[in-house]
């Protein structure tokens, strides 16, 4: 564990807590893409198949349970909670994400570290996470005004993978046999997808104005 990865995990945890706060405090999920939440639930379920087979550390196991539990809880809330579900922007959140799922799974069948069930699903989860934010970014552009908590949620979600890129650089420099090309390239693509969001987020922060994404 290094400081970059810890910062990344904490930033990721903060993004989850901000989202839970928004949904719990406002009893609303307006501006949140259910499709992105479902993609993230798939990412965690596919990535943490080793949850019970490989014990890395208590921290690792607890964080995996937190991410799986929170993503499933958010999906459940947005689909079935009688108050929250009413504020879901169903007509705006129309990204056909099964194309993404199919493409990522196909890529994982071709490009993986080892051809085993667990490794193919792990690579699938890495590719899928890189594009999982797309429905959310599309929804933000369509819904125009972005409330603060939603903006902060997306910001922290994007920032965490940027910390992971620093972590991979650090591990590449300090660990002789460390190579995680799949994670690195996907992480770069993932962070690049947030580039324009980060730009408009910075502008809104600098001008102390409401976050506006151009349609």
């Amino acid at each position: 564990m290094n400081i970059f990865r810890l910062a990344g995990d904490m930033t990721h945890l903060i993004s989850v807590l901000v989202l839970l706060l928004k949904i719990y405090a406002t009893k609303s999920c307006s501006g949140i893409s259910l499709k992105t939440q479902e993609l993230y639930a798939m990412v965690f379920l596919a990535r943490y198949l080793d949850l019970f087979s490989d014990f890395i550390s208590l921290y690792n196991t607890v964080m995996k349970l937190v991410f799986i539990g929170s993503s499933l809880a958010i999906v459940w809330c947005m689909r079935y909670h009688r108050v929250v579900r009413r504020s879901y922007d169903r007509e705006l959140d129309t990204f056909r994400y099964w194309i993404l799922v199919g493409a990522c799974f196909t890529l994982a069948l071709v490009l993986h570290e080892k051809f085993s069930f667990q490794e193919v699903f792990w690579a699938f989860s890495i590719y899928l996470e890189a594009v999982a934010i797309l429905p959310q970014l599309v929804l933000l552009q369509r819904s125009g005004n972005v409330d603060n908590l939603t903006g902060q949620y997306v910001f922290f979600l994007g920032a965490y993978r940027a910390f992971y890129i620093l972590n991979w650089i650090y591990r590449y420099l300090t660990e002789p046999r460390f190579t995680r090309w799949i994670s690195c390239v996907s992480g770069l693509v993932q962070t690049a997808l947030y580039a324009d969001f980060f730009y408009y987020y910075f502008i809104s922060w600098k001008n102390n104005a409401k976050l506006q994404l151009p349609a």
């Binding site: 490989d54 890395i56 550390s57 690792n60 991410f67 570290e113 792990w122 972590n167 002789p176 460390f178």
Partner: peptide, 10 residues
């Protein structure tokens, strides 16, 4: 599995 190739990252 030594540390570097174990999936020790989240």
């Amino acid at each position: 599995k030594d540390d570097s190739d174990a999936k020790d990252e989240l």
